[in-house]
């Protein structure tokens, strides 16, 4: 069978195509299992969300001093409150996303990838569904704790539209981020060590993605460069939508996310097909 996803053997031995609903149901079950698994350890979930308090506290000190020193009420159209709410959303997305590149790398290196490849699901989609189950809960925890802290620091959050628009964009952010994770993980088929790629990707997200500083504060040329790279649409897009929601901005974020998903997702797909074809398993 050339494509395990598109066709399975029927009980009669004929090849039949499963419906889209059946395929979706399979990954929904994986997602739900991971969700229930994470819910089984609520203290751990809460504990992991405490990290956002540390970052928000440091950011508050940094930007309070900076706004105070400039004497301006707003910088690049963002007030101190806008900046803090932006950073809260950026950190919530960053801290919730599951970095699956390490898991995939280990599975490739130790050969356990072989046990997942012969299962009736797609290796890449399996990891995405499982990672998403973990991310959804972590995102909820980070949002609740992060929002409570920032509310105490600078006042109430943006309106309901911001929450809805940002929430919609975050789903595609995770998908785009997962494509990069998969790319890094699958590179273990070719190179011995993938840690360096992972660190550098993380730092691109911190800097060019706008986790440490809103891209609006960049010099114009660097802002243009950043907005033409995919990292901005993983973090900056949803976070900026959160503090300044508009249909035009939402359309722009979706468009950019769609373009980059097609490009990076396409590369992942090709790489996965080639890697799976080249896979050699020794032993039994």
């Amino acid at each position: 069978m050339s494509n395990r996803e598109a066709s399975v053997l029927s009980p009669e031995g004929c090849v039949r195509n499963p419906s889209a609903a059946a395929v979706a149901g399979k990954y929904w079950a994986i997602f739900r299992t991971q969700l229930v698994n994470s819910l089984a350890y609520p203290i751990d979930l809460l504990g992991r969300s405490l990290l956002i308090v540390l970052f928000m506290w440091i950011f508050m000190n940094l930007w309070q001093v900076t706004y105070g020193a400039t004497g301006a009420r707003s910088i690049a159209g963002l007030t101190l409150a806008d900046t803090m709410w932006y950073l809260m959303m950026a950190e919530a997305v960053m801290l919730s996303k599951r970095d699956l590149s390490e898991t995939i790398t280990e599975q490739v290196k130790d050969g356990s990838v072989a046990y997942l490849l012969n299962k009736p699901f797609n290796f890449i989609l399996y990891h995405f569904a499982a990672g998403l189950g973990d991310s959804v809960l972590a995102f909820g925890g980070n949002l609740i704790i992060g929002a409570a802290v920032v509310w105490l620091m600078v006042g109430p959050p943006p309106g309901l539209t911001g929450w809805i628009f940002a929430g919609a964009a975050v789903g595609l952010s995770w998908l785009l981020d997962f494509c990069f994770s998969a790319l890094i993980g699958l590179s273990a088929f070719v190179v011995e060590e993938t840690n360096a790629f992972r660190w550098i990707y993380q730092k691109f997200l911190l800097l060019l993605g706008g986790v440490l500083i809103p891209l609006d504060f960049f010099p114009a040329w660097l802002q243009t460069v950043s907005l033409n790279l995919p990292f901005a649409w993983i973090i900056y897009g949803p976070a900026r939508l959160f503090v300044d929601p508009s249909l035009a901005r939402l359309g722009q974020v979706f468009l950019q996310q769609g373009i980059w998903l097609t490009v990076v997702g396409g590369i992942v797909w090709v790489m996965y097909r080639r890697a799976a074809a080249r896979l050699v398993i020794n032993g039994g």
Binding site: A69, W199, L206, P219
Partner: peptide, 27 residues
């Protein structure tokens, strides 16, 4: 690979401070 990767990683992180101080000079 890990040595060079970590050096690049740190250098990219430090760019944040270069951008920051280019705009705000001192804190």
């Amino acid at each position: 690979t890990q040595v060079v990767g970590m050096m690049l990683n740190n250098a990219i992180y430090f760019v944040f401070w270069i951008i920051f101080f280019a705009r705000f000079e001192e804190i």
